[in-house]
Design a protein around this nucleic acid. Sequence first.
DNA 1: CCTGTATAAAACCACTTGGTTATTGAACGA
DNA 2: TCGTTCAATAACCAAGTGGTTTTATACAGG
Lengths: 120, 120
Amino acid sequence: MSPDLLDATFAALADPTRRAILARLASGEATVTELAAPFRMSQPAVSKHLKVLERAGLVSRGRDAQRRPVRLEARSLKAATDWLENYRTYWEESYQRLDALFGELKAEEGTRGGKPEGAS
Amino acid sequence: MSPDLLDATFAALADPTRRAILARLASGEATVTELAAPFRMSQPAVSKHLKVLERAGLVSRGRDAQRRPVRLEARSLKAATDWLENYRTYWEESYQRLDALFGELKAEEGTRGGKPEGAS
DNA sequence: CCTGTATAAAACCACTTGGTTATTGAACGA
DNA sequence: TCGTTCAATAACCAAGTGGTTTTATACAGG
């Protein structure tokens, strides 16, 4: 995933209204007015949110007469999740490795030459 | 995870500088000036980014004399990832369920009473 | 006690964001 | 063709963001 897309995706997910829109879309396509209804918010406001979601690739638009149905774009949702998952795993591993090392050093220092725990 | 924390977390992750800071922290604690060095950016700017990361719980600060070492907060990183993963799974499942249903309906309609594909 | 160092805080600026209302555009239905 | 409906665009506004420079604070060490 490109950094720009990551920026756009996380930024898109950072808004509760947009997360609610995604949640709503999980139960099927919807038009802009349908999406706007529950939000006590004007139609243009929702259109703006949709544009943000679209720029992040989280959503795509169809065409049905004058309606522009919105649908979840599962693929790019998965891409974003995978990215986070991979990085998180890596970060966590590094952290734990360092933490273990630090713990070892501290233990050594404390006991002056008698490693207490099962340090490899 | 509370909506506010989700907002803060995704917003924090939406900035490439902050993601780079997290990546850097995976290889160990660092001070503000250490973190600021590679970024051709002033120290206060980095301090602001750190405050954003801290508000999201992604990072915590220690105290070592006048230094304030920053460390990755693996736990809340995991919380965020888990949240996304759960929701993504749910969304994707709903989507696929609906998509399959839609495919079935279309097939029925198209062939007028002779399901062509292996629809269960 | 003064000096240097590490960080935070303040004040400021340009740009973006999330919202509004009003207007325009596109497609249908009669 | 005319009105209606769904959505996008425009123009605007308040508040937030990401950066700056300058100033203040806290601590260590001679």
